[in-house]
């Protein structure tokens, strides 16, 4: 009864989503080290810590589980929702809603495609499934990131993906709390502002790094 109900599915999706939102902050914190002009010492040390720390090693499969849960339930719920209106309206709905709330599935698909590319670029190389590209003397996350981000097209696409993720997150945070049953006349308006601020921090923070590396004359590989 509990797990098969429509509400329970969304609660699991919300919990997984909030977990992923916390992970993004950690990821952003480490990525920002790419901007320090120490030749990647701090970033590499952080990446090394994430790769070897036993707690992080346990957290890694949990993180993959979180992604899978969020994506699987997102697909399932979207499918059920589409099936609930087999004949569409002739005139599309013009009710007052926040613009991005209606496009969570679409923005989610874009983020998923980005994630697939991101995994191929970094994780599969780390695991050795994909050979590292030619042209870098030393292969590690720092040099890999610097090489990729020095391409303006790659950096532009990366930033664009995070803009779409920002739209997703802008609705996601308050939506997750609402699904968990947390709606309050005093705290919900503040939570909506905090959710939007979080989305802006993630989008600007993650986008700044490749754009700075691609377009700043100060950056050297």
């Amino acid at each position: 009864m509990l797990l098969s109900s429509s509400i329970a599915g969304k609660v699991l999706m919300a919990l997984a989503g909030l977990f992923l939102a916390m992970f993004l902050l950690v990821h952003l914190g480490i990525n920002l080290l790419l901007l320090s002009s120490d030749g990647g010492v701090a970033f590499t040390a952080a990446a090394e810590f994430m790769a070897t720390n036993p707690i992080i090693k346990i957290a890694e499969p949990v993180l993959f589980g979180g992604f899978l849960l969020h994506i699987a339930f997102g697909m399932m719920v979207s499918g059920q929702n589409r099936a609930a209106r087999p004949v569409r309206y002739q005139e599309s709905n013009s009710s007052e809603t926040s613009l991005f709330s209606k496009y969570m599935f679409h923005t989610g698909i874009v983020v998923f495609l980005f994630l697939a590319m991101h995994m191929a670029d970094f994780y599969l190389i780390k695991l050795g499934f994909i050979a590292p590209p030619e042209g870098i003397g030393q292969h590690d996350f720092y040099h890999r990131a610097m090489l990729l981000f020095s391409n303006p097209w790659y950096s532009g696409f990366y930033a664009l993906s995070f803009l779409v993720l920002g739209f997703h997150l802008n609705h996601a945070i308050q939506s997750a709390f609402q699904t968990l049953g947390l709606n309050h006349s005093r705290y919900t308006p503040a939570l909506k502002v905090a959710g939007s601020a979080y989305a802006i921090i993630i989008t600007v923070g993650f986008s700044l790094i490749p754009l700075w590396i691609a377009f700043s004359p100060l950056t050297r590989l």
Binding site: S4, S5, S6, K10, N81, A84, S101, K102
Partner: peptide
């Protein structure tokens, strides 16, 4: 759930 309604995605329409 058995009647074919969709789920809430918090668009607040």
């Amino acid at each position: 759930d058995g009647l074919g309604f969709g789920g809430c995605s918090n668009t607040y329409a």
